[in-house]
């Protein structure tokens, strides 16, 4: 175990990754529900943070509740939520290139006469006509907002292109850089903390992705704890510099460490 180099700090919030950290597909990581309950008994804010481009908050919440996790809608912050807050903050009216299931997270956002492009994983929208429309808007100055830039993902029938290639193509066409809103972007973490009234130095992130969870959080000024579940592979901790604050076997070990050493 890596020692607690940072020393004691007044911890106010814990950010927790979902897939691979508290559950893997439709099974909870053993002990995760109890660990969450213990965390709630300490006076500390909790938020669940995840990169998704097609699952709405409601769908994520329903899955977690089925697995007996005790949490509320407002405790979930996703890359879609991050896109939404950016739109609200800048008062953009977006063209949403997202799958239908993701659209409910944008309920109430004005999409008339769009002046911004939001792009996630949306095979139905990645046709020539729609991409041309998005391209012309961005060329005319509309900001390009990417939920994330994954290259490809695994589908039942094999590998399939993610949003990243299409974002990259639009960036090339328009000579502009997309604003990426999901993990590991710094703004993702600061936005997740914004309504908790605490600064990054008062928060810790727990996740199974060394780069996106731990590296991203630490880059934003938080502590990062890497768990050896989910997508974790031996040596992942060496992918980031500085290394994780701590590496734990699972979420419940991470919670024990927090309760014992960080409060």
């Amino acid at each position: 175990m890596v020692s607690n180099m940072a020393g004691r700090r007044a911890l106010k919030a814990v950010l927790i990754d979902l897939s691979g950290t508290v559950h893997v597909e439709d099974a909870a990581v053993p002990g995760a529900q109890d660990a969450l309950n213990k965390l709630r008994q300490a006076s500390i804010a909790v938020k669940f943070v995840t990169n998704t481009t097609k699952e709405s908050k409601r769908e994520l919440l329903e899955r977690l509740q089925r697995l007996n996790f005790d949490l509320q809608d407002k405790e979930i912050f996703t890359s879609l939520s991050a896109a939404r807050s950016l739109l609200e903050q800048k008062q953009h009216r977006p063209l949403l290139l997202l799958e239908d299931s993701a659209l409910e997270d944008f309920t109430g956002i004005d999409t008339s006469e769009p002046n911004a492009v939001v792009i996630g994983l949306a095979p139905d929208h990645f046709n020539y006509q729609t991409l041309n429309k998005a391209f012309r808007m961005v060329l005319d100055g509309a900001p390009l907002i990417a939920i994330h830039k994954a290259r490809y993902y695994k589908r039942k029938d094999g590998l399939a292109l993610g949003p990243g290639p299409f974002v990259t193509g639009l960036e090339y066409a328009t000579d502009c850089k997309a604003t990426v809103v999901g993990k590991p972007e710094k703004t993702f973490f600061t936005q997740a903390l914004s309504d908790l009234g605490c600064s990054p130095s008062e928060a810790v992130m727990i996740g199974d992705d060394a780069r996106d969870d731990v590296g991203g959080a630490q880059n934003a000024g938080m502590l990062g704890i890497l768990v050896r579940t989910g997508k974790y592979r031996e040596g992942d901790e060496n992918k980031i510099n500085p290394p994780p604050h701590l590496i734990c076997d699972s979420f419940s070990h991470a919670v024990e460490h927090i309760l014992k050493n960080l409060l």
Partner: peptide, 15 residues
């Protein structure tokens, strides 16, 4: 204006 081949070339290069 219409997207040209370079855009799709960049997409496949990135992927």
């Amino acid at each position: 204006l219409k997207l040209d081949v370079g855009v799709y070339m960049k997409a496949l290069e990135y992927a």
